[in-house]
Amino acid sequence: MEYILHKKSNCKRIKIRVIEGVVCVSAPFTVSKKIIDDFVQEQEAWIKNQLDKNTQSKENDLICLLGNEYRLHYINQKMCYVAGNALYLYPDKTLIQKFLKQNAKKYIDLRFEFFCEQLNIHNISLQYGFYKSKWGSCTPSKHKICFNVNLIFMPLEFVDAIILHELAHLFHFNHSKDFYNLLCTWMPNYKEIVKENKKKQLPKLY
């Protein structure tokens, strides 16, 4: 496997990172090339998994948006839209993010309103962003909940699970036993849904 090697005096052990599809290895000056090669080979499965996450989506790939599959097409017109079973995107990060946010917000707002009505919860403001390590967050003191726009790529039952997860934080701030008892009262199969979708890879559209 090809990789870029950086030997550093302040490096105490071999480290591997995948940055924008490139495998970067850092190692101490005293470590031989053979030992580094063997270490990289041992981590091959992990590296391939990271590389898959960084693979750019291609023409005609199937992309799932809010539970529906669309055939991806990149176009020259400065617009992003869905027509029939096709997803048309102009390859511009800002434009694509705007399209994803508008459509994610439209759906999640409705589901959030539905659950709030069912649970008698009021006066919560919503925000949306693109996050790498969280699906959502809740700040009870500010009556604010944030959702990750990338939820648009996930199954609808998973979106519901995340909405309920953040709503449960209005009653229990941490992930205590009481928190999960409440959450599983609202959605008995919550843990199964999260476990099933935990390793789902998101498409890279830009």
Results as ranks from 00 to 15, higher is better:
Asn123Met: 09
Ser137Ile: 04
Lys142Ile: 00
Val149Arg: 02
Lys106Thr: 09
Cys146Met: 12
Gly129Trp: 06
Asn148Ile: 05
Ile124Arg: 02
Phe112Gly: 01
Leu110Ile: 11
Leu119Trp: 11
Asn120Glu: 13
Asn123His: 14
Lys105Asp: 00
Leu110Pro: 00
Ser137Thr: 10
Cys138Asp: 01
Tyr131Met: 05
Ile145Gly: 08
Ile145Leu: 06
Pro140Lys: 11
Ile145Ser: 06
Asp109Ala: 14
Ile145Pro: 04
Lys144Asp: 00
Glu117Val: 09
Val149Ser: 04
Tyr128Val: 05
Asn150Ala: 10
Cys138Asn: 08
Gly129Val: 00
Cys138Ser: 05
Asn150Cys: 11
His122Trp: 05
Ser141Val: 12
Val149Asp: 01
Ile108Met: 09
Leu110Ala: 14
Asp109Pro: 12
His143Leu: 07
Lys105Thr: 09
Lys144Thr: 01
Leu119Ala: 10
Arg111Gln: 09
Ile124Leu: 10
His143Phe: 11
Cys146Ile: 07
Asp109Met: 15
Asn123Gln: 13
Val149Gln: 02
Leu126Gln: 07
Ile145Lys: 03
Asp109Phe: 11
Gln118Arg: 15
Tyr131Ala: 08
Phe112Thr: 01
Tyr128Asn: 04
Asp109Gly: 13
Asp109Cys: 15
Pro140Ala: 10
Cys116Val: 09
His143Ile: 04
Ile108Phe: 08
Ile121Tyr: 12
Ser141Met: 13
Ser137Met: 08
Ile108Cys: 08
Gly136Thr: 04
Phe112Leu: 09
Gln127Phe: 12
Ser137Cys: 13
Ser141Trp: 04
Glu113Ser: 07
Lys132Ser: 07
Leu126Thr: 04
Leu110Thr: 08
Lys134Phe: 03
Thr139Cys: 08
Ile108Trp: 05
Ser133Ile: 03
Lys142Leu: 07
Phe130Thr: 06
Gly129Thr: 01
Arg111Phe: 02
Ser133Val: 03
Thr139Ala: 13
Leu119Val: 09
